[in-house]
């Protein structure tokens, strides 16, 4: 099963200043959607609303699958995930950080261990699994954030500026991870970036957030 997401007439203001003005867009299953736009254009706000972390002032976010229209409940929230630009690292090992999503879902230990090992290898952090996650570099931290999201096998993975605060080498590794997800065909990736070259390399669909409106890149 897989999810599709439709945003209809989404509006959001902060302190009376409109950030999103009537955003409507459909995200079909699978593929990589990349949003670019200037600072404060509303990309992150839209991502947070779409990932059900924040509420819109008006408009609608609808998730659907083969089961039909889905309710915005915890079951749906557990099928999607957002990786924030600043990764909130728990003060424990890399392994336990990555296992968090499975632990809160009550997945048995052996199954969790197998999946976590697999994902840590996928993002190139297997050798750091016993290290305290607070001591890893910023690039590794970003990869750990993605690993933590991938462990739960989200149907939609939202990535907010995944390479904004990391060096070129780690940025390349993160791009490789996104390319592998694209090739895997199981996860829809909806991400934001400032890097237009990166958008060109990764996007199946390139969107531009301009003055609170989302438009396709021509």
């Amino acid at each position: 099963m897989s999810l599709a997401l439709t945003a209809s007439h989404v509006r959001k203001s902060y302190n009376g200043r409109p950030v999103l003005e009537d955003v409507s867009m459909s995200f079909d299953r699978h593929g990589v959607y990349v949003m670019t736009g200037t600072n404060g254009s509303g990309k992150s706000t839209f991502l947070r609303i779409s990932a059900l972390i924040d509420d819109a002032d008006s408009g609608e976010i609808v998730f659907s699958s083969e089961e039909g229209i889905l309710k915005h409940d915890i079951r749906l929230k557990r099928r999607i995930t957002l990786v924030l630009p600043q990764i909130g690292i728990f003060n424990t090992t890399v392994f336990k950080n990555a296992a968090y999503g499975m632990n809160i879902r009550g997945v048995p230990g052996a199954e969790t261990a197998k999946k976590v090992e697999e994902v840590l290898a996928f993002v190139g952090l297997a050798h750091k699994k016993d290290q305290n996650a607070l001591t890893v570099s910023s690039g590794e931290r970003q990869r750990l954030g993605i690993a933590r999201a991938l462990v739960i096998e989200p149907e939609i993975l939202f990535l907010d500026e995944p390479t904004a605060s990391i060096d070129e080498k780690n940025s390349g590794i993160v791009e490789d991870i996104i390319m592998k997800l694209k090739a895997g065909g199981k996860t829809t990736v909806i991400m934001t970036t400032h890097d237009k070259d990166q958008a060109g390399r990764l996007a199946d669909t390139w969107l531009i957030m301009h003055e609170g409106r989302l438009i396709p890149h021509s």
Partner: peptide
């Protein structure tokens, strides 16, 4: 505890109770 911890656990599908437990765990020291 950094508010980013609470946000991160929410994005990973934690219930409000699980978010609180996570924050308590982070505050353990």
């Amino acid at each position: 505890v950094d508010p980013i911890i609470s946000q991160s656990s929410r994005t990973l599908g934690a219930t409000p109770y699980q978010v609180s437990l996570t924050i308590m765990k982070e505050a353990r020291f």
